[in-house]
Design a protein around this nucleic acid. Structure first.
Length: 552
RNA sequence: GUCCUCGUAGCUCAGUUGGAUAGAGCGACAGCCUCCUAAGCUGUAGGCCGCAGGUUCGAUUCCUGCCGGGGACACCA
């Protein structure tokens, strides 16, 4: 980042002096092939036309000016018709090390968000059963997105929306009630769609023990008690599972609370008043088509009951009223078709759906065990819960697996593979890099080598080999990776960055004896470099919610 | 049927505001521990970036069509 800013500033000032301006198409970036130097800048044809010079002459003029103005440049070549390949001196790159020391855990953080208030809503699973592996993916993605955005200078709030007002929840109460009646030896008419999991029976038995009088109560009353108890019990389980998965929701928001406060009715009134809603066939419709939806959507059914969509609009209106600039929702991919109507709702609320609202879709997780599909269905009760998976493979491996792939691609999650401690499981590769450095620093300390809290340029001067410069450059790129990932509202770039940094570290570690050399100044410089690498690995892993162990 | 999305090495996937010779890991093959953690390193092989057009000085990237995988299309949540 520093390097690009440096070069860009210099180039702009040169162009300015020539009476030219920076063209849109000109890019400064690290070349894919390191042989082309640290930075490559292309000079588009537009520029040569403006300058009235042939491409080669312009490139030469720019090169001369750059060399005169930037003492940091150690090599500069003109490649092809319009490429300037620039190499910066080691001293420039070495400055990143004291920067990691100064900033510590904050190194890499930035001000991409400029304090923008963004709310990330994720998981929000109906509390009708324990979280399964698919919820786990959404949990990891949402939680890490929040960590990333916070790190990048956004003001982030995380929230779980509890859908406790709908039909599914009545069905949950009924399922528990029927289980309880069954256990009490009363007659039971099983509907087709009740919840069958063992946890329903457990809840029913637990409740019966606490309230032995329950089977003799009238249906309505008993149902209410069953529902309340079951939901609370399941929510407690969900909270515990999320906590164990290192996932934090700052706010738990109840749909029922929203409905009871009259917020849904108020929102419907507002929509009607603004001309967004109309009556047809005895139902209340929301005109979403003007905003690009396929068809208009029902808000209140002809039987008088509200749709989920109606309360969801009220919910999003409520969020905006709470002062958020942007709402970011993490949804299951089956909500794909729901996005256009939600965007329409956002627009009807007077907000910009392009900038103030966004959705991350979480594709399906195919849970496998040794290549065999594991069946999942909440209703039938045959599923592997998040808690079971975490128990089997660990939080780190599970989170890293979820976060190293784009979330809108389906993911094969093979329990046997994720348990393995090899490169099928990249989390260990990254963690191992961290642990190796920690071990090395411990050993150095044991030998009486003490490192200063903060180092100066002279101490780092010995770092000049290609591998060392590659590591320094990689450290420099961390902030860029954070910036880009934050703008993309996706964390997989961080995982890939960490894999790359760890790879460079392992290679360096294997090929360069750190402690056994006889050049003490070099040894100290290398230890300082590695300490900086460890800091960046730890910072990156923390964004993913993965631990950075000192020993493995 | 309509819309969305994906298609990159044998496998799992990165990469693209259009730029030089397209990357990583796994798997395969060949090497490296009397030495700082071998959960590691080094090297080799492996590619019409789905196909066909278009825009451009330049396309894996943008546009159109087609083929193939996945998904969404309720007065469900």
């Amino acid at each position: 980042m520093r390097d690009i800013v440096l070069l860009r500033t210099a180039l702009e000032s040169i162009l300015h002096d020539m009476g030219l301006s920076w063209p849109e198409k000109a890019v400064i970036e690290p070349p894919k092939d390191p042989r082309h130097g640290d930075l490559a800048c292309n000079l588009p044809l537009v520029l040569t036309k403006q300058a009235g010079l042939p491409p080669r002459a312009l490139a030469e003029r720019m090169a001369d000016e750059l060399k005169a103005r930037l003492p940091e440049i150690s090599a500069l070549e003109i490649a092809g018709p319009g490429f300037l390949n620039i190499t910066l001196a080691p001293a420039f790159w070495q400055r990143v090390v004291p920067e990691t020391e100064r900033q510590g855990a904050a190194f890499g953080s930035g001000n991409t968000g400029q304090g923008r208030k963004i709310q990330v809503e994720f998981v929000s699973a109906n509390p009708t059963g324990p979280l399964h592996i698919g919820h786990g993916r959404g949990a990891a993605v949402g939680d890490s997105l929040a960590r990333l955005l916070r790190f990048a200078g956004y003001h982030v709030s995380t929230e779980y929306y509890i859908n406790d007002a709908g039909r599914q929840m009545r069905l949950l109460g009924l399922s528990v009630w029927l289980r309880l009646r069954d256990a009490a030896g009363l007659t039971v008419d099983w509907p087709d769609d009740y919840y069958r999991g063992d946890y329903i029976r457990d809840i029913a038995l637990e409740l019966w023990q606490k309230s032995p009088e329950l089977p003799s109560l009238p249906d309505d009353e008993a149902l209410d008690i069953c529902f309340e108890y079951a939901m609370q019990s399941i929510l407690d389980g969900i909270k515990a599972d999320l906590a164990a998965f290192r996932v934090e929701h700052q706010m738990w928001f109840s749909e029922r609370g929203l409905v009871r406060a009259g917020a849904v009715e108020r929102t419907l009134d507002d929509l009607k008043r603004e001309g967004h809603a109309y009556e047809k066939d005895g139902a209340l419709w929301f005109a979403t088509t003007p905003y690009g939806d396929d068809k208009d959507r029902v808000l209140r059914k002809s039987d008088g009951s509200l749709t989920y969509f109606a309360s969801d609009i009220a919910y999003h209106a409520d969020k905006f009223q709470r002062g958020f600039d942007e709402l970011w929702d993490v949804w299951g991919a089956d909500h794909h078709g729901y996005i256009p109507r939600m965007r329409a709702a956002i627009a009807a609320l007077g907000r910009n759906p392009d900038t103030d609202f966004g959705v991350t879709l979480i594709q399906l997780v195919n849970l496998l065990r040794g290549g065999e599909q594991v069946a999942m269905s909440t209703r039938s009760g045959e599923f592997v819960t998040l808690a079971e998976v975490v128990d089997e493979v660990g939080v780190d491996a599970a989170r890293f697996m979820f976060l190293s792939r784009k979330s809108d691609n389906s993911l094969d999650f093979d329990l046997e593979l994720v348990k393995q401690r090899n490169m099928d499981n990249p989390v260990y590769y990254v963690q191992y890099a961290h642990a190796r450095i920690a071990a090395l620093l411990r050993r150095a300390e044991g030998r009486g080598v003490t490192l200063p809290e903060s180092c100066d340029a002279a101490l780092l001067a010995p770092l000049a080999s290609p591998e060392e410069l590659a590591l320094l450059r990689a450290l420099e790129r961390f902030a860029d990776a954070v910036h880009e990932a934050a703008l993309a509202r996706a964390t997989h770039g961080i995982s890939h960055y960490l894999m790359e940094l760890a790879g460079k570290l392992h290679s360096y570690y294997t090929n360069n004896p750190i402690l056994s050399g006889d050049d003490e100044a070099l040894m100290r410089a290398r230890l300082l470099l590695l300490r900086a690498v460890r800091q960046v690995l730890a910072n990156g892993l923390d964004l993913l919610g993965v631990s950075a162990p000192d020993t493995m």
